[in-house]
Computed example of a mutant assay.
Amino acid sequence: MSASMSPDAARALLPALRETIREAADLALPFFQAGGQTRARIWSKAGGSPVTEADVAVDTFLKIRLSGLLPEAAWLSEETADDAVRLGSDLVWIVDPIDGTRAFLSGHPDWSIAVALLAGGVPVLGFVHAPVPDRFYEAVAGGGATCNGTPIAASAQADLAGARVTGPKPMIERLARGGTRDGVKPPMVQVDRVPSLALRIARVAEGSIDVGLVSSDARDWDLAAADLLLTEAGGAVTDPGGTPTAYNRPDPVHGELVAVCGGLRHAVIDAFGRRI
C-alpha cells in the first residue's frame, strides 16, 4: 500500500464510507421503478449515452462527502468534468455514481454505485453497492473482500468446460473458438449479461460467475472498485493477453478486458491468444 495511505488509515475510513454510500443509494432509489421507466429526468450526454438526474445527484453528494473525508485526494468520476490535477495526485477517488444507467432507467435491478480510492495508481479501497438486491461488496488491499460483511472468494473452476461466462456475445464466441480442442468447443454455461460492469466483476469475485468479459471503451470508474474486489477474492482483471489493468492515466479508457477466477486465468488468456 502507498506510503500516503497505510492499511490502518484505509480501514479507519470504512465506517464513514459505508454510511456515505448507503446514503447515496437512498438518493437514487426513489427515482428507480422496478420493471418500468425511471421517475428521473433523462437527457443525453455527448456521444449519446443517457444520464439521469439521479446520476447527477449521487455524483454531487459523493463528491462533497468523499472530499470531506479525504481532502487531499483528487477526483475522477463519470459525471464530473475531468481535472488533470488527478494525474499528479497520489490519492484519487474513482467514482461511478450509477454504474448501469440504462438498467436503472429501464427498471432492471442490476445497477450499482462504485467507489474506489487509488493510492499510487493502485486501488486500495473498493466498494460496489447494488441497492436493489441490497448487495454491498467491499475490499481493502491486503484485507480480503466481503459481501454484506461475509468473506467472498472467486470460484475454484479450472476448466473452460462448464465455466459460467457472461459478457458481449462476440467475446464469448471468440473465447469458445479459442478454447476448441480436437474440433470441440468447450461447453461453457452462458449467464445473462449483467448491465453494470462493476457488478459483473463483483459477481466473479463472489463466485457466482467464473468469467466476466468486458468490451472496449470501459472507463476507470466502471472498473477500479470491482478490480480490487476480484483481486482480493483470488481472481484478476486483465486484458485478453494477461496485462493487468492500469488506472489514473491521462485517458481513462480501456480496451477489451477479462475478469476471471484464478484457476481459469491461464486458460482464458490462452484461448484469446489462439487465432481460430
Rank of each mutant, 00 (worst) to 15 (best):
A158Q: 13
Q33Y: 00
A259R: 12
N148H: 00
L117K: 09
E206K: 05
M1F: 03
Y137H: 13
P50L: 09
D8H: 11
A130G: 11
G178H: 09
Y247I: 09
T52H: 00
D182E: 10
V56R: 13
A233G: 09
D8T: 06
A73R: 05
K63H: 14
G212V: 11
H108I: 13
V211Q: 07
P240I: 05
A119R: 04
F31N: 02
G255T: 09
P244W: 06
P244A: 06
D134Q: 04
D192V: 12
M1S: 14
R219E: 14
D270R: 10
I98A: 09
L62H: 08
W111P: 02
A116S: 13
I209C: 09
A176P: 04
V268M: 07
A226S: 15
P30V: 03
G107T: 08
S49G: 01
F136A: 01
G262L: 08
S2V: 01
K169G: 05
A3R: 09
A16H: 02
L105I: 10
A103S: 11
A10H: 00
L175Q: 01
S155E: 03
E206T: 03
R200H: 12
P186E: 08
P170S: 11
S89V: 06
R174K: 15
R265W: 00
R193E: 12
A163Q: 04
L264K: 13
G47P: 02
T180A: 15
F61R: 11
R18N: 14
D59H: 04
D270A: 14
V132F: 04
A119W: 03
A81Y: 03
V211I: 15
